[in-house]
Design a protein around this nucleic acid. Sequence first.
RNA 1: GGCGUCGUACCCAAGUGGUCCAAGGGAGCAGUUUGCAAAACUGUCAUUCGCCGGUUCGAAUCCGGCCGACGCCUCCA
Length: 466
Amino acid sequence: MPIKFYNTLTKQKDEFQPIRKGEVKLYTCGPTVYDTAHIGNFRTFLFEDLLKRYLILKGYQVTHVMNLTDVDDKTILRCNSDHISIHDLTEKYIKLFFDDLHRLKIIPADFYPKATEHVPEMIDMVKKLIDNGYAYKSEDNSIYFNIKKFEKYGKLANLNFAEQKTTQRIATDDYSKDHPQDFVLWKAWKKEDGKVYWESPWGKGRPGWHIECSAMSNKYLGENFDIHCGGVDNIFPHHENEIAQSECANNKPFVNYWLHSEHLLVDGRKMSKSAGNFYKISDLTDMGFTPEALRYLLLSGHYRTNINFSVDKKHEALKVIQRINDFYKRLLDLSSNCNKTDELPEAYNLFIKALDDDLNTPEALAVFFEWMRNTNAHIDNNILSDKDIIYAINFIDEVNVVFDLLISRGFRIPTKIVDLANQRQTARINKDWIKADSIRDQILKLGWIIEDAPHIGYKLKSVLEK
RNA sequence: GGCGUCGUACCCAAGUGGUCCAAGGGAGCAGUUUGCAAAACUGUCAUUCGCCGGUUCGAAUCCGGCCGACGCCUCCA
């Protein structure tokens, strides 16, 4: 079964056909590293992680590039106000970004090119655009792209520039442009830029924002590649401009499939620092959200809808993660004498069918939950065969390739907790319920949950929810 | 002004013409089980899909109007 993706370029679900059989070249817009990324940014990065994991599950060899924008207006402003070099500032936030990626179990990209390390490539591309007649130099030595020369300009964002009403912001913008909506490829140095500049054939300056993604995707993935992703806010102007630059420089189509994720809302509103609903990953882990809980919450809504995040969802997410992990352990405990195979249960086909349809994660999770409930019931009734146990484990392993909701950190049970549990066991055998209950409370206070088996035996679980 | 998205139970969230008198998760309630719990399971939880009309044999799904939330139109995941 082929995968279908909603392609922003065609505005419909298209069957996915890679350029080279079995291979996918994927470019995802990365962070601007002048500040810490927030939960909204990670909604997009997690969508991209899901996409990549699913392509891997389907057997594709994925080459993934994520850029790091380490020079732009905000970054320069921040350096000047904090009296810190651009390198020191961006390295700090790059490190924090990688920490968060790791924490959320996002599979690392193959390349993380930095804008500042690819200026020559960008200059080359601007040169090509000038040579091909698509770009011009303004009075202040900046280079602009002439949108009138590119017939398809506006196709991705579905904007009609001939009838476009000029907004206040554009009208009061740069006077030296031929057309108000032309965008900058190379920005001439200004006093405020301080030490931040590169030499170019047009004098000192720095690259425009959009050119980095065109130049770097070109370098690492080729002039025409398969998939390009980002948040919906990138559709215009960023991705529209990337298309214009790349196609006019190379005279060939740029990207075949454009996938965009919707924004995340917090408590039904746009996240903002002033509204007090602005969260970084570290804020949420401090509140007790586990990486798996965050993955679940951000992947349980479809990527093209606004998902509504709220700290009130912590209980729901932790509960779900606990259920899945308990179920997995339950199966593993039953599997010791079973012969391994790589076969899968029927429900797996429905799971794949849901994800094939433009990554319908809510549907896929529904299939999984329903199957899990039935399988638990079969275990309760002791009617699950050895073969079924192995199929079930295989299924969860596959689900985990895509969602990664199994807790991989080992919880080592402290000796003290085991001792208490054993004392309680003795009390239970002696039917000393008062003592047994009091030890259970004590264990709970130490951060562990004890679950009894009928008559004798127990399980210990770490308290995930505080 | 232009382009576009969304409104489904207490909360979250699929479904986009009949197999839906509407999946799945969380919360609640009742039960099985348990020394009691927990976990697991079972049952219950929207005669109805923002509102009003229309098309159709048939609509949550298509069309029109209205109400409400939101995005983009050169900062933005």
